[in-house]
Lab assay of single mutants.
Amino acid sequence: DRIFMTRTEALEFLLKAHQTAVDKIGHPSHKQTPADHAAIEALDRLLLDVRARRVDQFQINASAAQIIVTD
């Protein structure tokens, strides 16, 4: 599946995904793992790359739809 978004929409989408990941590892019942921190770092890099126009398409994980940034 493909989803087309403007750059602004894609950045909002990534910010929400980032916040969800941060909230998940901050929850008291969740045991933090290196994979959790790696996922947040990957989202940080992706946010910067989309914002800087170095990336025009991405996929958060293998089961997610491919996001295509349109400007």
Rank of each mutant, 00 (worst) to 15 (best):
D49L: 13
L15D: 05
D71E: 03
H27A: 13
I60V: 09
V22G: 02
D71C: 05
T20M: 15
P28F: 04
V22Q: 05
S63D: 12
E9D: 09
K16P: 00
D23E: 13
A65I: 11
A64R: 07
A35C: 04
A42D: 10
I60K: 01
N61F: 10
Q32Y: 15
F4G: 02
K16A: 10
R2L: 10
T8G: 09
V50N: 00
T70Q: 09
A21N: 04
Q19M: 09
N61Q: 10
D44L: 13
H37V: 14
A10G: 01
I67H: 02
E41R: 08
K31L: 15
D56P: 02
F4K: 05
E41C: 07
L43D: 00
R51G: 12
H27L: 10
M5L: 06
A39C: 06
A10T: 02
H37T: 14
A35P: 04
F58T: 00
K31Q: 13
A65L: 12
A35L: 09
F13V: 04
D71T: 08
T20C: 05
L14T: 00
E9G: 07
Q57K: 15
S63W: 09
F13L: 11
H37K: 15
D23W: 03
K24W: 05
I68R: 03
Q32S: 12
T20H: 13
R53S: 14
L47Q: 03
I25G: 04
K16E: 10
D49A: 04
D23G: 07
S29H: 07
T70V: 15
V50G: 00
Q59M: 11
T6G: 05
F58L: 02
L14K: 00
Q57C: 06
L47A: 05
E12M: 10
P34L: 05
T8W: 12
A17C: 06
I60W: 08
G26L: 10
Q57L: 08
T8E: 07
D49Q: 08
R53T: 08
T6W: 02
T8N: 13
D71K: 04
A21T: 07
A65F: 13
V50I: 07
T33V: 06
E9C: 08
Q57H: 13
A21D: 01
I68N: 04
L47Y: 13
K31W: 09
Q32M: 11
R7I: 07
A10Y: 01
Q66F: 13
V69I: 15
A62T: 12
R2N: 12
T6D: 05
D23M: 06
I68V: 12
D71A: 09
R54Y: 06
P28Q: 09
R54D: 07
I40N: 01
Q19C: 03
D71G: 09
R51A: 12
K24L: 12
L11R: 01
D1F: 02
F4W: 08
D23Y: 03
A52Q: 12
F58D: 00
Q66N: 04
A35E: 14
E12C: 08
K16I: 11
Q32H: 15
A65V: 14
L46I: 07
R51L: 07
K31R: 02
A21Y: 13
P28N: 10
Q19H: 08
K24V: 07
D1I: 08
H27V: 07
R51Y: 13
H37M: 15
R51P: 02
L46V: 03
D44F: 14
F13T: 03
L15F: 08
R54K: 12
L43A: 01
P28H: 07
H18V: 11
G26I: 09
T8A: 13
D71Y: 07
A65P: 07
D44E: 14
Q32L: 15
H18S: 04
V55R: 05
A64S: 15
R45Q: 11
A39S: 10
T70Y: 13
K16S: 04
R45G: 05
E9K: 09
T6V: 03
L11D: 01
Q32D: 15
L48D: 12
R54F: 06
Q59R: 13
K16R: 14
A62I: 10
T70I: 14
A21I: 14
A38H: 08
V55F: 02
H18D: 00
Q32F: 13
A10H: 08
V50S: 00
K24E: 09
I40E: 02
A62G: 15
R53W: 11
K24R: 14
K31N: 15
A42Q: 13
